[in-house]
Simulated scan of single mutants.
Amino acid sequence: MTKRYDKEFKLQTVQMIKEEGKVVAQVARELGISENTLYRWITEYQESGKQAFPGSGQLKPEDKAMRDLQKRIRDLEEENDILKKAMHYFAKDRR
């Protein structure tokens, strides 16, 4: 079973490494977390800053915006298809 860590814990751990200059291997041993996990957390923090570690079911703001835009595109494409079918139906009636 994979252990879950909350955002605050991850942020504190990364700050311990980045700001206090602790060695990743030492922190990994002290906390019982793999070094690979800590390096992944550091990378995510460097890429996203305080927006890192959004939590399960949560999206980063830019990911949410992208998902919302993709949904809007799908909705518009579906509406466009319906209108095309209606146009063909009514054009057929005029003949």
Score class of each variant (00 low, 15 high):
S34H: 03
E20T: 07
M66N: 03
I73K: 10
R95M: 14
L83A: 05
K71E: 15
G49Y: 01
S48V: 03
V23T: 11
K18L: 15
F9G: 01
F53I: 00
L59R: 07
I82G: 03
A86R: 05
K22V: 15
Q46A: 12
K60C: 09
M87C: 03
S56C: 14
V24I: 15
K64F: 13
E44D: 06
V14I: 09
M1I: 11
R40C: 14
F53D: 00
D68N: 15
I33C: 03
K50F: 03
F9M: 00
I82K: 08
I82E: 02
N80W: 02
I42E: 00
V27A: 03
K85L: 07
S48W: 06
M1C: 11
K3H: 10
A91Y: 00
T43M: 10
E78H: 09
Q15D: 12
I73H: 06
K7A: 13
I17S: 02
Y39M: 04
D81W: 01
E35V: 12
A65S: 09
L31R: 15
M87A: 09
Q12L: 15
R74M: 14
D63T: 03
N36Q: 13
F53T: 00
T37H: 02
R72D: 11
Y89W: 06
R67S: 10
R94E: 14
Y39A: 07
S56P: 05
Q26W: 09
E77Y: 03
E8D: 15
E78K: 15
E47C: 09
A52H: 02
S34N: 06
K85N: 07
R95E: 13
E19C: 14
R95H: 11
L69S: 12
M16K: 10
T2G: 12
G49F: 03
W41S: 01
D75G: 11
F53Y: 04
L76K: 05
Q51M: 12
A86C: 03
Y39C: 05
E35K: 10
R74H: 15
A65T: 05
